[in-house]
Design a protein around this nucleic acid. Structure first.
Length: 448
RNA sequence: GGAGGGAUGGCAGAGUGGUUGAAUGCACUGGUCUUGAAAACCAGCAACGAGGCGACUCGUUCGAGAGUUCGAAUCUCUCUCCCUCCGCCA
Protein backbone atom coordinates (compact mmCIF):
# COMPACT_ATOMS: atom_id res chain seq x y z
CA UNK A 1 0.00 0.00 0.00
CA UNK A 2 1.14 3.49 -0.74
CA UNK A 3 1.34 6.17 1.91
CA UNK A 4 -2.11 7.81 1.91
CA UNK A 5 -0.64 11.14 3.01
CA UNK A 6 1.78 11.08 0.12
CA UNK A 7 -1.07 10.43 -2.30
CA UNK A 8 -3.06 13.35 -0.94
CA UNK A 9 -0.12 15.72 -1.14
CA UNK A 10 1.11 14.75 -4.60
CA UNK A 11 -1.97 13.34 -6.18
CA UNK A 12 -1.08 14.48 -9.72
CA UNK A 13 2.46 13.08 -9.51
CA UNK A 14 1.18 9.78 -8.16
CA UNK A 15 -1.31 9.47 -10.98
CA UNK A 16 1.46 10.06 -13.52
CA UNK A 17 3.83 7.57 -11.89
CA UNK A 18 1.12 4.93 -11.73
CA UNK A 19 0.23 5.48 -15.35
CA UNK A 20 3.78 4.39 -16.16
CA UNK A 21 2.81 0.89 -15.19
CA UNK A 22 -0.51 1.10 -16.96
CA UNK A 23 -2.56 1.71 -13.84
CA UNK A 24 -5.41 4.14 -14.30
CA UNK A 25 -5.76 6.05 -11.03
CA UNK A 26 -9.16 7.64 -10.74
CA UNK A 27 -7.99 10.93 -9.31
CA UNK A 28 -11.39 12.61 -9.31
CA UNK A 29 -13.09 9.82 -7.40
CA UNK A 30 -10.31 9.68 -4.85
CA UNK A 31 -10.14 13.45 -4.37
CA UNK A 32 -13.89 13.62 -3.98
CA UNK A 33 -13.97 10.87 -1.36
CA UNK A 34 -11.02 12.48 0.40
CA UNK A 35 -12.85 15.79 0.64
CA UNK A 36 -15.89 14.04 2.09
CA UNK A 37 -13.74 12.05 4.47
CA UNK A 38 -12.00 15.12 5.77
CA UNK A 39 -15.24 16.97 6.39
CA UNK A 40 -16.99 14.07 8.09
CA UNK A 41 -13.97 12.96 10.07
CA UNK A 42 -13.47 16.40 11.56
CA UNK A 43 -17.16 16.61 12.48
CA UNK A 44 -17.19 13.11 13.95
CA UNK A 45 -14.13 13.74 16.05
CA UNK A 46 -15.62 16.98 17.35
CA UNK A 47 -18.74 15.10 18.43
CA UNK A 48 -16.68 12.38 20.06
CA UNK A 49 -14.68 15.01 21.85
CA UNK A 50 -17.85 16.63 23.22
CA UNK A 51 -19.22 13.27 24.35
CA UNK A 52 -15.96 12.41 26.08
CA UNK A 53 -15.85 15.75 27.84
CA UNK A 54 -19.42 15.51 29.10
CA UNK A 55 -18.98 11.91 30.20
CA UNK A 56 -16.00 12.90 32.25
CA UNK A 57 -18.02 15.66 33.87
CA UNK A 58 -20.72 13.17 34.82
CA UNK A 59 -18.11 11.10 36.54
CA UNK A 60 -16.89 14.08 38.52
CA UNK A 61 -20.41 15.22 39.48
CA UNK A 62 -21.37 11.73 40.63
CA UNK A 63 -18.30 11.54 42.79
CA UNK A 64 -19.35 14.80 44.41
CA UNK A 65 -22.87 13.49 44.84
CA UNK A 66 -24.44 16.16 42.64
CA UNK A 67 -27.29 15.84 40.16
CA UNK A 68 -26.39 14.79 36.62
CA UNK A 69 -29.82 15.08 35.01
CA UNK A 70 -29.08 18.18 32.98
CA UNK A 71 -25.83 16.94 31.56
CA UNK A 72 -27.23 13.48 30.85
CA UNK A 73 -29.94 15.07 28.76
CA UNK A 74 -27.35 17.03 26.85
CA UNK A 75 -25.07 14.10 26.13
CA UNK A 76 -27.84 11.76 25.08
CA UNK A 77 -28.96 14.28 22.49
CA UNK A 78 -25.59 13.84 20.79
CA UNK A 79 -25.96 10.07 20.56
CA UNK A 80 -27.86 9.65 17.32
CA UNK A 81 -26.00 12.38 15.48
CA UNK A 82 -22.72 10.82 16.50
CA UNK A 83 -23.71 7.31 15.50
CA UNK A 84 -24.87 8.57 12.15
CA UNK A 85 -21.70 10.49 11.60
CA UNK A 86 -19.53 7.52 12.56
CA UNK A 87 -21.42 5.28 10.17
CA UNK A 88 -21.00 7.73 7.32
CA UNK A 89 -17.31 8.08 8.04
CA UNK A 90 -16.85 4.33 8.08
CA UNK A 91 -18.58 3.97 4.74
CA UNK A 92 -16.35 6.55 3.11
CA UNK A 93 -13.23 5.23 4.79
CA UNK A 94 -14.14 1.79 3.47
CA UNK A 95 -14.39 3.04 -0.06
CA UNK A 96 -11.09 4.85 0.27
CA UNK A 97 -9.42 1.78 1.69
CA UNK A 98 -10.70 -0.37 -1.12
CA UNK A 99 -9.17 2.06 -3.59
CA UNK A 100 -5.90 2.26 -1.66
CA UNK A 101 -5.60 -1.51 -1.39
CA UNK A 102 -5.98 -1.84 -5.13
CA UNK A 103 -3.23 0.59 -6.06
CA UNK A 104 0.04 -1.08 -7.06
CA UNK A 105 3.47 0.10 -5.98
CA UNK A 106 5.12 3.04 -7.68
CA UNK A 107 7.97 2.12 -10.00
CA UNK A 108 11.43 3.26 -8.93
CA UNK A 109 12.94 6.01 -11.07
CA UNK A 110 15.47 3.57 -12.51
CA UNK A 111 12.71 1.32 -13.88
CA UNK A 112 12.35 1.50 -17.66
CA UNK A 113 9.10 2.75 -19.14
CA UNK A 114 6.92 0.30 -20.99
CA UNK A 115 3.78 -1.74 -20.87
CA UNK A 116 4.65 -5.31 -21.81
CA UNK A 117 7.55 -7.71 -21.58
CA UNK A 118 8.66 -6.48 -24.98
CA UNK A 119 9.77 -3.29 -23.23
CA UNK A 120 11.94 -5.06 -20.65
CA UNK A 121 15.63 -4.21 -20.76
CA UNK A 122 18.45 -6.73 -20.78
CA UNK A 123 20.92 -5.77 -18.09
CA UNK A 124 23.44 -8.55 -18.38
CA UNK A 125 24.16 -11.82 -20.11
CA UNK A 126 26.22 -14.62 -18.56
CA UNK A 127 27.63 -17.91 -19.78
CA UNK A 128 28.19 -19.52 -23.11
CA UNK A 129 25.34 -21.18 -24.88
CA UNK A 130 26.38 -24.72 -25.64
CA UNK A 131 26.91 -25.65 -29.24
CA UNK A 132 25.12 -28.95 -29.71
CA UNK A 133 26.30 -31.24 -32.47
CA UNK A 134 22.82 -32.76 -32.46
CA UNK A 135 19.32 -31.32 -32.14
CA UNK A 136 18.72 -30.75 -28.45
CA UNK A 137 15.52 -32.21 -27.05
CA UNK A 138 13.22 -30.44 -24.66
CA UNK A 139 12.71 -31.71 -21.12
CA UNK A 140 9.42 -33.37 -22.01
CA UNK A 141 11.04 -35.58 -24.58
CA UNK A 142 14.02 -36.24 -22.32
CA UNK A 143 11.69 -37.09 -19.47
CA UNK A 144 9.64 -39.47 -21.57
CA UNK A 145 12.71 -41.11 -23.01
CA UNK A 146 14.10 -41.91 -19.58
CA UNK A 147 10.69 -42.48 -18.00
CA UNK A 148 11.68 -40.17 -15.17
CA UNK A 149 9.02 -37.53 -15.80
CA UNK A 150 5.50 -38.94 -15.66
CA UNK A 151 2.80 -36.45 -16.57
CA UNK A 152 0.16 -39.13 -17.14
CA UNK A 153 0.52 -40.50 -13.65
CA UNK A 154 0.07 -37.02 -12.21
CA UNK A 155 -3.01 -36.46 -14.35
CA UNK A 156 -4.46 -39.69 -13.01
CA UNK A 157 -3.67 -38.83 -9.42
CA UNK A 158 -4.80 -35.24 -9.57
CA UNK A 159 -5.25 -33.52 -12.92
CA UNK A 160 -3.50 -31.35 -15.43
CA UNK A 161 -0.49 -29.20 -14.60
CA UNK A 162 1.02 -31.68 -12.19
CA UNK A 163 3.95 -34.02 -12.63
CA UNK A 164 5.47 -37.08 -11.02
CA UNK A 165 9.25 -37.05 -10.95
CA UNK A 166 10.87 -40.44 -10.55
CA UNK A 167 14.10 -42.15 -9.67
CA UNK A 168 17.37 -40.35 -10.14
CA UNK A 169 15.63 -37.31 -11.53
CA UNK A 170 13.71 -36.97 -8.27
CA UNK A 171 17.05 -37.31 -6.52
CA UNK A 172 18.50 -34.58 -8.70
CA UNK A 173 15.52 -32.39 -7.82
CA UNK A 174 16.24 -32.96 -4.15
CA UNK A 175 19.96 -32.38 -4.70
CA UNK A 176 19.19 -28.99 -6.21
CA UNK A 177 17.26 -27.95 -3.12
CA UNK A 178 20.10 -28.98 -0.84
CA UNK A 179 22.66 -27.28 -3.01
CA UNK A 180 20.72 -24.02 -3.11
CA UNK A 181 20.00 -23.95 0.60
CA UNK A 182 23.57 -24.79 1.52
CA UNK A 183 24.96 -22.13 -0.77
CA UNK A 184 22.74 -19.41 0.61
CA UNK A 185 23.23 -20.41 4.22
CA UNK A 186 26.97 -21.13 4.12
CA UNK A 187 28.18 -18.63 1.56
CA UNK A 188 25.64 -15.84 1.57
CA UNK A 189 24.80 -15.62 5.27
CA UNK A 190 21.11 -16.44 5.16
CA UNK A 191 19.08 -17.84 8.03
CA UNK A 192 17.22 -20.93 6.92
CA UNK A 193 13.56 -21.16 7.89
CA UNK A 194 10.94 -23.82 7.52
CA UNK A 195 7.43 -22.41 7.48
CA UNK A 196 3.74 -23.37 7.26
CA UNK A 197 2.56 -24.08 3.75
CA UNK A 198 -0.95 -22.99 4.59
CA UNK A 199 -1.33 -19.29 5.27
CA UNK A 200 -4.13 -17.04 6.44
CA UNK A 201 -5.69 -14.03 4.76
CA UNK A 202 -3.80 -11.54 6.89
CA UNK A 203 -0.49 -12.88 5.61
CA UNK A 204 -1.65 -12.76 2.02
CA UNK A 205 -2.93 -9.26 2.53
CA UNK A 206 0.45 -8.29 3.94
CA UNK A 207 2.41 -9.32 0.89
CA UNK A 208 -0.22 -8.01 -1.54
CA UNK A 209 -1.86 -11.16 -2.95
CA UNK A 210 -5.13 -10.26 -1.26
CA UNK A 211 -7.64 -8.83 -1.80
CA UNK A 212 -6.91 -8.33 -5.49
CA UNK A 213 -5.48 -11.65 -6.66
CA UNK A 214 -7.50 -14.26 -4.83
CA UNK A 215 -8.26 -16.15 -8.03
CA UNK A 216 -4.58 -17.05 -8.38
CA UNK A 217 -4.64 -18.95 -5.09
CA UNK A 218 -5.81 -22.33 -3.87
CA UNK A 219 -8.31 -21.71 -1.14
CA UNK A 220 -9.06 -23.92 1.85
CA UNK A 221 -12.38 -22.86 3.38
CA UNK A 222 -12.77 -22.87 7.14
CA UNK A 223 -16.18 -22.77 8.73
CA UNK A 224 -17.11 -20.77 11.83
CA UNK A 225 -14.09 -18.55 11.92
CA UNK A 226 -14.66 -14.84 11.68
CA UNK A 227 -13.78 -13.24 8.38
CA UNK A 228 -10.50 -11.43 8.37
CA UNK A 229 -10.90 -7.69 8.59
CA UNK A 230 -8.33 -5.73 6.73
CA UNK A 231 -6.60 -3.61 9.36
CA UNK A 232 -7.68 -0.18 8.09
CA UNK A 233 -11.13 -1.27 7.16
CA UNK A 234 -13.81 -0.36 9.61
CA UNK A 235 -16.96 -2.23 10.27
CA UNK A 236 -20.07 -1.19 8.48
CA UNK A 237 -22.13 -4.20 7.63
CA UNK A 238 -21.39 -6.11 10.80
CA UNK A 239 -25.06 -6.43 11.67
CA UNK A 240 -25.88 -8.22 8.46
CA UNK A 241 -22.97 -10.60 8.72
CA UNK A 242 -24.02 -11.84 12.12
CA UNK A 243 -26.54 -14.37 10.82
CA UNK A 244 -24.95 -15.09 7.55
CA UNK A 245 -21.76 -16.50 8.86
CA UNK A 246 -18.82 -15.82 6.63
CA UNK A 247 -15.76 -17.93 6.57
CA UNK A 248 -12.14 -17.03 7.02
CA UNK A 249 -10.21 -19.00 4.46
CA UNK A 250 -6.83 -20.58 4.62
CA UNK A 251 -4.80 -20.69 1.43
CA UNK A 252 -1.98 -22.79 0.08
CA UNK A 253 1.05 -20.58 -0.20
CA UNK A 254 1.77 -19.32 -3.74
CA UNK A 255 5.37 -18.60 -2.72
CA UNK A 256 7.40 -18.73 0.49
CA UNK A 257 7.63 -14.96 0.18
CA UNK A 258 4.25 -14.89 1.95
CA UNK A 259 5.03 -16.74 5.19
CA UNK A 260 8.64 -15.57 5.36
CA UNK A 261 8.00 -11.87 4.80
CA UNK A 262 5.16 -12.09 7.30
CA UNK A 263 7.67 -13.12 9.95
CA UNK A 264 8.15 -9.37 10.36
CA UNK A 265 4.45 -8.56 10.54
CA UNK A 266 3.50 -6.44 13.56
CA UNK A 267 7.07 -6.37 14.78
CA UNK A 268 9.36 -3.53 15.69
CA UNK A 269 12.87 -4.74 14.96
CA UNK A 270 15.90 -3.06 16.45
CA UNK A 271 18.37 -1.51 14.04
CA UNK A 272 21.19 -3.77 15.15
CA UNK A 273 19.28 -6.82 13.92
CA UNK A 274 19.08 -5.50 10.37
CA UNK A 275 19.40 -6.68 7.71
CA UNK A 276 17.39 -9.86 8.17
CA UNK A 277 18.08 -12.38 5.44
CA UNK A 278 15.99 -15.53 5.23
CA UNK A 279 16.15 -18.46 2.88
CA UNK A 280 13.29 -20.93 2.69
CA UNK A 281 12.55 -23.98 0.62
CA UNK A 282 8.88 -24.64 0.06
CA UNK A 283 6.38 -25.96 -2.39
CA UNK A 284 4.33 -23.28 -4.13
CA UNK A 285 0.75 -23.63 -5.26
CA UNK A 286 -0.82 -21.54 -7.97
CA UNK A 287 -4.19 -21.88 -9.59
CA UNK A 288 -2.82 -20.47 -12.83
CA UNK A 289 -6.18 -18.92 -13.54
CA UNK A 290 -5.88 -16.86 -16.66
CA UNK A 291 -2.99 -18.80 -18.08
CA UNK A 292 -5.12 -21.20 -20.09
CA UNK A 293 -3.25 -22.41 -23.11
CA UNK A 294 0.08 -21.08 -21.88
CA UNK A 295 2.84 -23.65 -21.39
CA UNK A 296 0.32 -26.44 -21.18
CA UNK A 297 2.92 -29.03 -22.05
CA UNK A 298 5.74 -29.91 -19.73
CA UNK A 299 6.60 -28.70 -16.28
CA UNK A 300 7.23 -25.03 -16.97
CA UNK A 301 3.91 -23.92 -15.51
CA UNK A 302 2.52 -26.21 -12.82
CA UNK A 303 -0.06 -25.90 -10.09
CA UNK A 304 2.60 -27.15 -7.68
CA UNK A 305 6.31 -26.52 -7.83
CA UNK A 306 9.18 -26.09 -5.43
CA UNK A 307 11.22 -23.02 -4.87
CA UNK A 308 14.03 -21.78 -2.70
CA UNK A 309 13.09 -18.25 -1.75
CA UNK A 310 15.27 -15.40 -0.52
CA UNK A 311 13.78 -12.64 1.61
CA UNK A 312 15.46 -9.51 2.94
CA UNK A 313 14.13 -7.06 5.50
CA UNK A 314 16.33 -4.02 5.51
CA UNK A 315 16.89 -0.41 6.47
CA UNK A 316 15.13 1.79 3.90
CA UNK A 317 18.41 3.39 2.84
CA UNK A 318 19.89 0.02 1.83
CA UNK A 319 17.11 -1.61 -0.09
CA UNK A 320 18.46 -0.93 -3.56
CA UNK A 321 21.89 -2.21 -2.59
CA UNK A 322 20.08 -5.22 -1.16
CA UNK A 323 18.27 -5.80 -4.42
CA UNK A 324 21.60 -6.02 -6.26
CA UNK A 325 22.97 -8.31 -3.56
CA UNK A 326 19.93 -10.60 -3.52
CA UNK A 327 19.88 -10.84 -7.30
CA UNK A 328 23.57 -11.65 -7.21
CA UNK A 329 22.92 -14.47 -4.75
CA UNK A 330 20.36 -15.98 -7.11
CA UNK A 331 22.80 -15.57 -10.00
CA UNK A 332 25.46 -17.42 -8.05
CA UNK A 333 23.36 -20.56 -8.22
CA UNK A 334 23.10 -20.36 -11.99
CA UNK A 335 26.80 -19.64 -12.28
CA UNK A 336 27.79 -22.58 -10.10
CA UNK A 337 25.53 -24.77 -12.18
CA UNK A 338 27.09 -23.23 -15.27
CA UNK A 339 23.75 -22.46 -16.79
CA UNK A 340 23.71 -19.55 -19.26
CA UNK A 341 21.30 -16.82 -18.27
CA UNK A 342 20.48 -13.18 -18.65
CA UNK A 343 19.29 -10.53 -16.22
CA UNK A 344 16.30 -8.49 -17.28
CA UNK A 345 15.13 -5.26 -15.72
CA UNK A 346 11.37 -5.39 -15.90
CA UNK A 347 9.65 -2.36 -17.34
CA UNK A 348 7.07 -0.55 -15.25
CA UNK A 349 4.13 -2.29 -16.89
CA UNK A 350 5.46 -5.81 -16.47
CA UNK A 351 6.16 -5.70 -12.74
CA UNK A 352 4.15 -7.41 -10.05
CA UNK A 353 1.68 -5.52 -7.87
CA UNK A 354 3.95 -4.99 -4.85
CA UNK A 355 7.25 -4.37 -6.59
CA UNK A 356 8.99 -1.02 -7.05
CA UNK A 357 11.74 -2.63 -9.09
CA UNK A 358 12.23 -6.16 -10.37
CA UNK A 359 15.04 -8.11 -12.00
CA UNK A 360 14.13 -11.35 -13.69
CA UNK A 361 16.74 -14.02 -14.21
CA UNK A 362 16.10 -15.98 -17.38
CA UNK A 363 17.88 -19.23 -18.01
CA UNK A 364 18.70 -20.54 -21.46
CA UNK A 365 16.62 -23.56 -22.46
CA UNK A 366 18.11 -25.15 -25.59
CA UNK A 367 15.11 -27.45 -26.02
CA UNK A 368 12.88 -24.45 -26.41
CA UNK A 369 15.54 -22.29 -27.99
CA UNK A 370 14.80 -19.37 -25.70
CA UNK A 371 15.41 -17.83 -22.28
CA UNK A 372 12.80 -18.58 -19.63
CA UNK A 373 12.23 -16.94 -16.25
CA UNK A 374 13.79 -18.87 -13.40
CA UNK A 375 13.88 -16.16 -10.74
CA UNK A 376 12.24 -12.86 -10.03
CA UNK A 377 13.90 -10.51 -7.57
CA UNK A 378 11.98 -7.51 -6.31
CA UNK A 379 12.37 -4.57 -4.02
CA UNK A 380 8.95 -3.80 -2.57
CA UNK A 381 10.29 -0.83 -0.59
CA UNK A 382 7.76 -0.11 2.18
CA UNK A 383 4.73 -1.27 0.18
CA UNK A 384 4.39 -4.61 1.96
CA UNK A 385 5.78 -3.29 5.24
CA UNK A 386 2.98 -0.72 5.43
CA UNK A 387 0.37 -3.41 4.86
CA UNK A 388 1.80 -5.64 7.56
CA UNK A 389 3.18 -3.02 9.93
CA UNK A 390 6.69 -4.39 9.70
CA UNK A 391 8.90 -1.81 11.34
CA UNK A 392 12.30 -1.06 12.81
CA UNK A 393 13.16 1.42 15.52
CA UNK A 394 15.13 4.39 14.35
CA UNK A 395 17.53 5.32 17.16
CA UNK A 396 17.76 8.91 15.87
CA UNK A 397 14.06 9.52 16.42
CA UNK A 398 13.45 6.58 18.77
CA UNK A 399 10.31 5.96 16.68
CA UNK A 400 9.28 2.88 14.72
CA UNK A 401 9.57 3.31 10.96
CA UNK A 402 8.65 1.03 8.08
CA UNK A 403 11.15 -1.52 6.86
CA UNK A 404 11.86 -2.27 3.24
CA UNK A 405 11.18 -5.82 2.11
CA UNK A 406 12.68 -7.72 -0.80
CA UNK A 407 12.23 -11.17 -2.17
CA UNK A 408 13.55 -13.31 -4.96
CA UNK A 409 13.75 -16.89 -6.05
CA UNK A 410 17.07 -18.48 -5.51
CA UNK A 411 15.88 -20.44 -7.55
CA UNK A 412 12.71 -22.06 -8.83
CA UNK A 413 13.68 -25.71 -8.42
CA UNK A 414 11.47 -27.28 -11.09
CA UNK A 415 12.63 -24.89 -13.74
CA UNK A 416 16.25 -25.35 -12.68
CA UNK A 417 15.74 -29.07 -13.11
CA UNK A 418 14.43 -28.46 -16.63
CA UNK A 419 17.38 -26.20 -17.37
CA UNK A 420 19.83 -28.89 -16.29
CA UNK A 421 18.04 -31.55 -18.30
CA UNK A 422 18.07 -29.49 -21.44
CA UNK A 423 21.52 -27.91 -21.10
CA UNK A 424 23.31 -31.02 -19.87
CA UNK A 425 21.70 -33.56 -22.20
CA UNK A 426 23.78 -35.94 -24.22
CA UNK A 427 23.12 -37.08 -27.77
CA UNK A 428 21.67 -40.35 -26.48
CA UNK A 429 19.13 -38.60 -24.25
CA UNK A 430 20.99 -38.92 -20.96
CA UNK A 431 21.69 -36.10 -18.53
CA UNK A 432 25.10 -35.15 -17.32
CA UNK A 433 25.26 -34.08 -13.66
CA UNK A 434 26.83 -30.63 -13.06
CA UNK A 435 30.01 -30.81 -10.96
CA UNK A 436 28.62 -29.00 -7.94
CA UNK A 437 25.72 -31.42 -7.62
CA UNK A 438 27.65 -34.68 -7.71
CA UNK A 439 28.37 -34.60 -4.01
CA UNK A 440 24.61 -34.57 -3.47
CA UNK A 441 24.12 -37.41 -5.96
CA UNK A 442 26.45 -39.91 -4.39
CA UNK A 443 29.05 -39.23 -7.05
CA UNK A 444 26.80 -40.10 -9.97
CA UNK A 445 27.89 -38.28 -13.14
CA UNK A 446 25.09 -39.14 -15.50
CA UNK A 447 21.45 -40.19 -15.28
CA UNK A 448 18.69 -41.18 -17.63
C1' G B 1 -12.23 -33.73 20.75
C1' G B 2 -13.36 -32.71 26.52
C1' A B 3 -12.31 -29.51 31.10
C1' G B 4 -10.11 -25.27 33.07
C1' G B 5 -6.84 -20.67 32.83
C1' G B 6 -5.16 -16.64 30.01
C1' A B 7 -4.16 -12.51 25.92
C1' U B 8 -2.51 -5.12 28.53
C1' G B 9 3.17 -0.58 25.60
C1' G B 10 9.84 -3.06 22.43
C1' C B 11 9.70 -6.96 26.69
C1' A B 12 7.91 -8.40 31.63
C1' G B 13 3.75 -7.14 34.50
C1' A B 14 -0.24 -4.17 37.80
C1' G B 15 -4.96 -2.62 36.86
C1' U B 16 -12.69 -5.42 37.49
C1' G B 17 -17.51 0.80 35.13
C1' G B 18 -15.67 7.32 35.76
C1' U B 19 -10.20 13.14 34.81
C1' U B 20 -6.51 5.31 33.27
C1' G B 21 -3.43 5.71 27.46
C1' A B 22 -2.77 2.83 31.56
C1' A B 23 1.34 1.80 37.98
C1' U B 24 6.07 -0.63 38.37
C1' G B 25 10.46 -3.04 36.44
C1' C B 26 13.62 -4.04 32.21
C1' A B 27 15.17 -2.26 27.53
C1' C B 28 15.91 2.25 24.86
C1' U B 29 17.26 7.83 24.29
C1' G B 30 19.47 12.28 26.49
C1' G B 31 22.16 14.36 30.68
C1' U B 32 25.34 14.55 35.36
C1' C B 33 29.70 12.07 37.18
C1' U B 34 34.37 9.66 34.70
C1' U B 35 40.64 10.04 30.96
C1' G B 36 37.06 6.41 28.82
C1' A B 37 33.60 2.64 30.06
C1' A B 38 30.60 0.40 33.83
C1' A B 39 27.82 1.62 38.11
C1' A B 40 24.92 5.37 40.38
C1' C B 41 21.72 9.48 39.91
C1' C B 42 18.36 12.90 36.96
C1' A B 43 15.12 13.39 32.77
C1' G B 44 12.48 11.49 28.54
C1' C B 45 10.03 7.39 26.18
C1' A B 46 3.11 3.43 23.29
C1' A B 47 1.10 3.11 18.46
C1' C B 48 -2.03 4.64 14.68
C1' G B 49 -4.98 8.45 12.56
C1' A B 50 -7.07 13.60 11.80
C1' G B 51 -6.67 19.07 11.86
C1' G B 52 -3.02 23.26 11.70
C1' C B 53 2.58 26.75 8.46
C1' G B 54 3.64 25.79 13.44
C1' A B 55 3.85 25.74 19.18
C1' C B 56 -0.03 22.33 19.54
C1' U B 57 -5.02 20.30 19.65
C1' C B 58 -8.30 16.29 18.90
C1' G B 59 -9.73 11.15 17.86
C1' U B 60 -8.96 5.77 18.00
C1' U B 61 -6.54 1.66 20.16
C1' C B 62 -5.54 -2.90 26.32
C1' G B 63 -6.01 -10.35 21.01
C1' A B 64 -10.27 -9.45 16.89
C1' G B 65 -15.39 -8.24 16.03
C1' A B 66 -20.22 -6.93 17.89
C1' G B 67 -23.27 -5.34 22.20
C1' U B 68 -24.79 -2.88 27.12
C1' U B 69 -23.77 2.34 29.06
C1' C B 70 -23.71 9.30 29.31
C1' G B 71 -18.93 6.70 29.97
C1' A B 72 -15.68 0.03 28.92
C1' A B 73 -8.86 -2.46 29.65
C1' U B 74 -12.83 -3.55 33.31
C1' C B 75 -19.71 -6.11 32.10
C1' U B 76 -22.30 -9.52 27.91
C1' C B 77 -21.93 -12.37 23.24
C1' U B 78 -19.06 -14.43 18.99
C1' C B 79 -14.34 -15.63 17.04
C1' U B 80 -8.89 -16.28 17.08
C1' C B 81 -4.57 -17.50 19.52
C1' C B 82 -1.62 -19.19 23.87
C1' C B 83 -1.00 -22.23 28.49
C1' U B 84 -2.35 -26.60 31.88
C1' C B 85 -4.80 -31.41 32.39
C1' C B 86 -7.39 -35.57 29.85
C1' G B 87 -8.29 -38.19 25.14
C1' C B 88 -6.43 -39.16 20.20
C1' C B 89 -2.22 -39.09 17.16
C1' A B 90 2.86 -38.71 12.89
Amino acid sequence: MLDPQKIRKNIEDIKLLLSKRGFEFNLEEFADLEAQRKDIQVKTQELQSTRNRLSKEIGILKKQGESTDEILKEVSSIGDTLKNSELKLNTIQDKLDTILQGIPNIPHESVPDGRTEADNVEKKKWGNIRDFNFTPKDHIELGELSGLLDFEAATKITGSRFVVIKGQLAQLHRALIQFMLNTHVNEHGYTEVNVPYIVNSASLYGTGQLPKFEEDLFKIPRQNAEPYEIPLETDVASNQSANNKLEENYYLLPTAEVPVTNLARDLVISKSELPLKYVCHSPCFRSEAGSYGKDTRGMIRQHQFEKVELVHMVHPDCSYDSLEELTGHAETILQKLELPYRVITLCAGDMGFSAAKTYDLEVWLPGQDCYREISSCSNCEDFQARRMMARWRNPDTNKPELLHTLNGSGLAVGRTLIAIMENYQTSDGKIHIPDVLRVYMGGVTEIG
